[in-house]
């Protein structure tokens, strides 16, 4: 447990110092989005990596958070912080309500149902033109502010988003090691066995679904205040798939793996740009090859690879 705390502090330090060498570079801006995606990936990983419940509609909660905050602050002039809390609670309540019927389903049926929720939400963003601006988007969303201090630069937003991300990470770490977390993993391994052992599997699944929706909604609120403009294309099926990919690449059921996945996938376009128009092919290939040869994601795969190649470095690599 002590090493866990140490790891977290080291990570905090890394987050704190990361923008310094980048001063003024646009990479700070990219890291802001890495932060948003980290929160999203973390939310999904709780559901998928720990409880083993697939969701292809995570973008719906992200979008509801973003549109909720966006509409309340730009149209109805709510205080952004109040809006963020109200929206996150409302989204969580919504998730709780649909969680019962949705999570009764398993495997590909669950995938299809969550996908359906995602598609319906996206259509709603597109069609409620009077409220959301429809496909041409919603602009004029204010930046977040504390008193007269406005989060209006990349650096300020970076600390804002990562502040939230760190809180979420801490929350997840504690959750994973709690009684609740152990229950979740039991469901993941065998739901029937977990039930027999007295875990209220159904309720727990809904609870973690709700939590994951809550976290995604917060990420949505942050995203809309950072961007100050949102449009429905950011909350479609592709986004849900991208989030899934982050977890697969980073590491299934690993808190830091989610962050790593978010970092890699958000930076990937930068790296792939050297491939010019071929980037989409490399992206697809990466997904297939990674899943076949590194099913645990980088967090588990890379240390394993290290161990095989250079036995000495094993310890270093395994610290994720």
């Amino acid at each position: 447990m002590k090493s866990d705390k140490l790891k977290f502090f080291a990570f905090c330090l890394a987050v704190l110092l990361a923008p310094l060498p980048l001063s003024g570079s646009y990479l700070t801006n990219v890291l802001v989005f890495v932060g948003v995606n980290s929160i999203l990936a973390l939310g999904l990983n709780l559901l998928l990596g720990f409880a083993g419940q697939i969701s292809l509609g995570q973008a719906a909660f992200f979008g509801l958070g973003a549109y909720g905050s966006g509409v309340l602050t730009s149209v109805y002039a709510f205080n952004p912080w109040v809006a963020m809390v109200v929206v996150a609670l409302a989204v969580a309540a919504f998730a709780f309500a649909i969680g019962f019927p949705v999570l009764r389903l398993k495997g590909h049926y669950l995938a299809m149902a969550t996908l359906g929720v995602g598609v319906i939400a996206n259509i709603a963003f597109n069609e409620t033109v009077d409220l959301t601006g429809g496909p041409s988007g919603l602009s004029g969303i204010p930046n977040l502010a504390i008193g007269s201090f406005t989060f209006d630069t990349d650096l300020k937003n970076y600390y804002l988003v990562w502040g939230f991300a760190l809180v979420m990470i801490l929350l997840s770490l504690n959750l994973v090691n709690s009684r609740f977390g152990r229950g979740l993993r039991a469901i993941h391994d065998s739901e029937v066995a977990a039930r027999v052992m007295g875990v209220n599997a159904r309720l727990m699944k809904v609870q973690v679904f709700t939590l994951s929706a809550f976290i995604s909604a917060i990420a949505g609120s942050l995203y809309c205040h950072v961007m100050t403009f949102i449009s429905p294309t950011s909350f479609g099926f592709n986004t849900s798939v991208e989030l899934l990919t982050m977890i697969v690449i980073g590491g299934f059921g690993s808190v830091y793996g989610s962050i790593l996945g978010a970092l890699l996938l958000t930076m990937l376009p930068e790296i792939l740009r050297t491939f010019n128009d071929y980037d989409i092919i490399v992206y697809g290939l990466l997904l297939v090859v990674m899943t076949i040869y590194m099913p645990g994601g980088l967090v588990k795969g890379v240390p394993a690879l290290f161990r095989r190649l250079t036995p000495k470095k094993a310890k270093e690599g395994a610290n994720a």
Binding site: Y26, T233, S234
Partner: peptide, 9 residues
């Protein structure tokens, strides 16, 4: 849109 913002930056 997210990519557009990053690339504009």
């Amino acid at each position: 849109t997210t990519k557009a913002v990053q690339l504009a930056n």
